[in-house]
Design a protein around this nucleic acid. Structure first.
Lengths: 343, 343
DNA sequence: CTGAAAGCGCTTACAG
DNA sequence: CTGAAAGCGCTTACAG
């Protein structure tokens, strides 16, 4: 069977093809009865508008693209659950607003040819992912130069030229720091790359450092170990920290996955959490609640984040001015950091 | 700035527009030097082929669509981690094969207008999701009738007219049953809707029942409680089971989420796992490893599943004959079912 | 190896 | 309220 087009519908309904198009787009110019006949024909023939033709003509596609960046060094088999959760919420938000979502994975190391192509296929782009920020930034500049419409998930900064949606990582880190201090901790280790290359981690680190500063204390360089957001890396970082032989009474992991890896390393060395070491993570992935002991962490509201990203992008597409959004990040205290309770 | 087209490139490279098209599609008919000039112009102007125009002309889009069905009764805020994992692996498989992936969420209760539309936007469709199978089946018949190319994730059955990729749920259930018997369990409860409406659960149930049958035992009706795949539902189902006041020494939950909910309910009633009750789930979601005690379960290989779904669909699109795939499901024994160890 | 021509299926001024 | 016409940007026979 050859493809059914608007001409087939027009023929069956006894009207011209443009009238079919008008009726289907809800034009008020079409007579009610004519519209009925057309809709009936559409049903009978099971016709659907060809989106490619429609998009080509209208110069908009009803599609948004999600470019997901994976750190190329990350574990091949599993995607960070936090990003999966973001992906789910973005997908849902798109569906609710009547947009399709095109997803593609990118590796920062590869060239961005595919992305540019997506810029043609979608009305706008959402950038999502960790990865080296400085490399990432250059790519963003290219997208901007092309006049692409896009928003990004990530740290919200004053000089940032791109509309961003992100959690308040600094306040989250601050809350963790204050909480650990209140538990009596004084020597807080930080697991995660706290350099400018990973601005989320950087902000979390400095939030915690601010809490210490206010208490007249400081983070110590010898208690910071780089780690990327995987269990494996968290495990290795904790081992590294232990190998240094320096004393610490708390570990603030830059993400939950890092924390969970660290938890395993600590346990294997006979250190009990929270009795010997208080532990906190960041993200509040589902696993955080189920590890033993349950993990104190900072919740990032992925549902709201997804909706905000999509809404911001849609406004941008409609030519409205859009500001970046800083979402609150909320401390969730669970057993892994409760030292008072443990004696 | 107005949009750059292949005519702009042609002009700059001093050739005709069709030659640009040929060069960009890798036609061997183009002179090497001509091609160089064209590619140079493409770079300078940052040109990208308009996918809509290209798709319209070629009648194929280089895009696959993933229709994800959510049980409308499911928890709004979270997506089953198992499906998130599938989503991740399908996305990755598409990217690797040079296809874009269009994702949309569907609720089985709503009409399928959107799906048909996707059929026009993508070269093929992947169906994914739990949900009432009988309702789902009718929708599939409609897609078939439209000549849509699609594959589905789900139970593989002989009379199934749709190319399917699924785990061997029966063998998985069988392995769980045999394992629980080996642990000395005799009265095995099953949490999950084991009716024809949920064929995955149904197969898991009957696999386990087969193990009992071989041992001269049987599953008992009073030990089966319906549940859908959420923690909340698993919690409720376990409470329901406990309220019946019948004796049981093991719980086989139809999914890990159900198992995790049940674990909480059991603990709250003072029942210890595995000492008082052995517990097993199904899926091997990341959380299964981190709950306390770690959950015995059946691993579904989502990575392979995603690749197989995409490859099967691509073959279908290329007009090849494609068989369904039954993926092995592997028992993963963890502490939640080890009664011997517990005395 | 390259160009002129037709056409993919729609939408939108332009007339009426 | 409706139709005839042009055109979105590409690809692909068809000539040469």
């Amino acid at each position: 069977m050859s493809k059914i087009t608007s001409f087939d519908i027009a023929h069956r309904a006894g009207v011209s093809q443009p009238t079919v198009s008008r009726a289907l787009r809800g034009s008020p110019l079409v007579n009610a009865q004519t519209r009925q006949r057309i809709l009936a024909a559409v049903d009978e023939l099971n016709y659907k508008v060809d989106k490619n033709a429609s998009s080509l003509r209208c110069k908009q596609s009803g599609t948004l693209a999600l470019l997901f960046f994976e750190d190329p060094t990350a574990d091949e088999s599993h995607i960070n659950p936090f990003f999966l959760s973001m992906l789910g919420s973005i997908t849902r938000a798109c569906t609710q607003r009547g947009y399709d979502l095109l997803i593609s994975f990118q590796q920062l190391s590869r060239d961005w040819h595919a992305d540019y192509a997506d810029a043609r296929k979608a009305d706008g782009i959402i950038l999502l992912g960790y990865g080296d920020y400085l490399a990432y930034r250059e790519k963003q500049a290219q997208l901007l130069a092309q006049g692409a419409r896009f928003v990004r998930w990530g740290v919200v900064q004053a000089e940032q030229p791109v509309v961003s949606v992100g959690s308040d990582n600094f306040s989250g880190g601050l809350a963790v720091g204050e909480h650990l201090l209140a538990q009596g901790c004084r020597r807080i280790a930080f697991l995660g790359d706290a350099s400018q290359h990973f601005p989320e981690f950087h902000a979390r680190y400095h939030g915690c450092a601010e809490a210490l500063r206010r208490a007249g204390l400081a983070m110590e360089g010898c208690l910071q170990v780089d780690a990327e957001s995987t269990e494996r890396s968290g495990y290795a970082a904790a081992e590294n920290l232990l190998a240094r032989g320096v004393a610490f009474d708390a570990v603030f992991a830059a993400s939950d996955l890092i924390a969970i890896g660290a938890l395993r390393a600590l346990n294997e060395r006979g250190l009990r959490v929270p009795e010997d070491v208080a532990l906190a993570g960041f993200d509040d992935i589902p696993m955080a609640r189920s590890v033993h002991p349950a993990l104190t962490t900072v919740m990032q509201d992925t549902k709201q984040a997804g909706e905000r990203l999509v809404d911001s992008l849609l406004r941008l597409i409609h030519g409205e001015a859009v500001a970046s959004t800083l979402l609150p990040a909320q401390l969730v205290v669970r057993r892994s950091s409760l030292r008072g309770q443990a004696g």
